[in-house]
């Protein structure tokens, strides 16, 4: 466990909590893509099946359970509790465009052809594109609430820190996981455009709005 990994996990947790607090306080999920949140719940569900098969550490187990619970609470808030505030009109990204290629790829390119390993690979590939419905929604409406941009910032920061973690692990342990690294880099690239807007607009006190 290195500093990048810990900060990455903290940043990931913070992003998830920011989103939950935003929805809870404003009693609204306006501007949030329910589809992205469904994908994240699916990501955690398919990745953390090893909770039933292997014990890694208390930290690992507790974090996995927290992520799972938070993901399902978020989906529940959007589709049940605050359903009336959900902007389904603008959450129009076609999920099959992500799910079909991701499913196909996880069968083709995995570490071993076993159910758990294929599902783990599926979750890695799916996570790399799961934010696209959210980014699509923002580009469609042309704006995002500042708190939503903080959520995206910490989610992107988590990805960037994981890359630093892999560089560190490669140099210290000669460890790298090609599937995780390639997907992780792809995922981080999706945040670059957003990072630029966050730094040039949000951090200068302006609302994120697209021309």
């Amino acid at each position: 466990m290195n500093i990048f990994r810990i900060l990455g996990d903290v940043s990931h947790l913070l992003a998830i909590i920011i989103l939950l607090v935003k929805i809870h306080r404003s009693k609204s999920c306006a501007g949030i893509s329910g589809k992205s949140q469904i994908l994240f719940a699916l990501v955690f569900t398919t990745r953390y099946l090893d909770l039933f098969t292997t014990f890694i550490s208390l930290y690992n187990t507790v974090m996995k359970v927290i992520f799972l619970i938070c993901a399902y609470i978020t989906v529940y808030m959007i589709y049940v509790k605050f359903r009336k505030t959900f902007d389904s009109e603008n959450d129009s990204f076609r999920l099959e465009f992500l799910l079909v290629p991701v499913t196909g790829l996880s069968f083709l390119e995995n570490h071993s052809f076993t159910p758990l390993e294929i599902l783990w690979t599926f979750s890695i590939y799916l996570e790399s594109v799961a934010i696209l419905p959210q980014l699509f929604m923002i580009s469609k409406t042309g704006e995002a609430e500042t708190i939503t941009t903080h959520y995206l910032f910490f989610l992107g920061l988590y990805r960037a820190l994981y890359i630093a973690n892999w560089v560190w692990r490669y140099h210290t342990e000669k460890f790298y996981d090609q599937i995780a690294v390639v997907s992780g880099v792809v995922q981080t690239i999706f945040y670059c455009d957003f990072f630029y807007l966050y730094v040039t607009k949000v951090l200068k006190g302006k609302k994120l709005s697209l021309p």
Binding site: R5, D9, H12, D50, T54, I56, S57, N60, M63, K64, F67, H111, W120, Y162, N165, F175, D177, I179, A180
Partner: peptide
Amino acid sequence: GLHAAGKDEL
């Protein structure tokens, strides 16, 4: 194996 260690990440 090498990739199994990857599962310690979240």
